[in-house]
């Protein structure tokens, strides 16, 4: 990868370009495993701006979750380690901060919500305790004011009867309710960046719709930059302004949501779109075959030299196997790492 999209974006755009809220550049994270060193994230770069939603899409093991854990300094060491890269936020490289300094930023200016709300909350502490502690710590409010703030936040995420919810414990609440509380907690210190890791994957679709709505509203109200990590192309289409597709630890495509969905430049993106059953399919059962991506993701401990998708790609050439393609701008504000993108057929899927 010669130039990252993030760098090109800023160098090419006008001086009026606002500095991004969060800039990740050339991030690399490794895990030591029994079968060797796994490169979970390899040269990941992105910018995210205030009020914008950037979606990072990928399947299991693509490195999408590890990226945000690395940003938050939450990769367990050992076995994991961030071996290269920078994470710029408010003129600091977060990776160089001490644990103490990170604690001030975590949950305050940069917040994170996880897929399983149940496991991210402490089961033996009441909701009030967990919410208010963070608020007191980061916002320097009196206990009374902090409680009031917590109540306000719960109302913002449409939690009925917030007073009594405060005194309850996580196991007394449903998954949807807990995820709303997590969002309220994450946003209670008015963060500039919200990293949301599969925030709705564990939820039912009607609850998911509510949560996505709340996230959109709050983003617009507080001008938060959202990094939405997901595997669900439907959620991406619904929420994102820009999209990054990751595969085996690397960014393979980046662009606006319209570009990614209507004119994907990487065969993997096209494969993903074609693999989805689409609502509104009316033909007889069996009349439409979903696109399959043959094979499996390469082991992160034993990555090929060339394009990591080549073994599963129907357009792969000798060059693809031998050499990793550069991540380059294919059309305006639309990057992909593919040697063959010019030769892909018309249309947006396989």
């Amino acid at each position: 990868m010669s130039t990252t999209a993030a760098e090109m974006e800023t160098s090419e755009s006008s001086q009026a370009e606002i500095t991004p809220t969060l800039r990740v550049s050339s991030l690399r994270a490794e895990f030591r495993t029994d079968s060797g060193t796994a490169i979970a994230v390899d040269g990941m770069s992105y910018d995210v701006h205030a009020g914008e939603t950037l979606a990072i899409v990928g399947e299991s093991g693509s490195g999408k979750s590890v990226t945000s854990l690395a940003i938050m300094g939450l990769i367990p060491n050992p076995p994991g380690r961030v071996t290269a890269g920078e994470v710029w936020f408010e003129n600091h490289d977060l990776l160089k901060l001490s644990e103490r300094e990170m604690q001030k930023i975590r949950g305050n200016k940069v917040s994170m919500i996880f897929q399983e709300p149940m496991t991210s909350l402490n089961p033996v502490l009441s909701i009030e305790r967990q919410m208010v502690e963070g608020i007191i710590e980061h916002l320097d409010l009196s206990p009374h004011a902090a409680r009031q703030h917590a109540l306000d936040m719960l109302k913002r995420v449409h939690i009925p009867d917030p007073e009594s919810r405060l005194s309850e414990f996580p196991h007394q609440l449903s998954g949807g309710m807990l995820q709303r509380i997590m969002i309220a907690m994450a946003l209670s210190c008015n963060p500039m960046v919200l990293l949301a890791d599969e925030p709705t994957t564990a939820l039912d679709v009607t609850i998911q719709a509510q949560i996505l709505n709340i996230m959109c509203d709050l983003r617009d109200e507080f001008d938060t930059a959202i990094v939405l990590i997901t595997h669900d192309m439907g959620v991406v289409a619904e929420m994102a302004d820009r999209v990054i597709i990751m595969y085996a630890g690397r960014k393979v495509e980046e662009g606006t949501v319209t570009n990614i969905f209507q004119n994907p430049q990487h065969p993997y993106t096209r494969g993903l779109l074609g693999a989805l059953p689409k609502l509104g399919f009316a033909g007889p059962v069996g009349s439409q075959t979903l696109n399959e991506i043959p094979g499996i993701v390469p082991a992160l401990t034993d990555l090929p030299a060339g394009c990591r998708f080549a073994a599963r790609c129907s357009y792969a050439t000798e060059q693809c196997v031998a050499q990793y393609p550069p991540f380059e701008e294919k059309t305006t504000a639309h990057w992909a790492a593919c040697w063959e993108s010019a030769n892909l057929p018309e249309g947006n899927q396989e």
Partner: peptide, 15 residues
């Protein structure tokens, strides 16, 4: 939970 995550694990460890 990163390493315990069943989604990441199989891939990190190789198929």
């Amino acid at each position: 939970s990163v390493v315990a995550d069943p989604e990441i694990r199989p891939v990190i460890n190789g198929g």
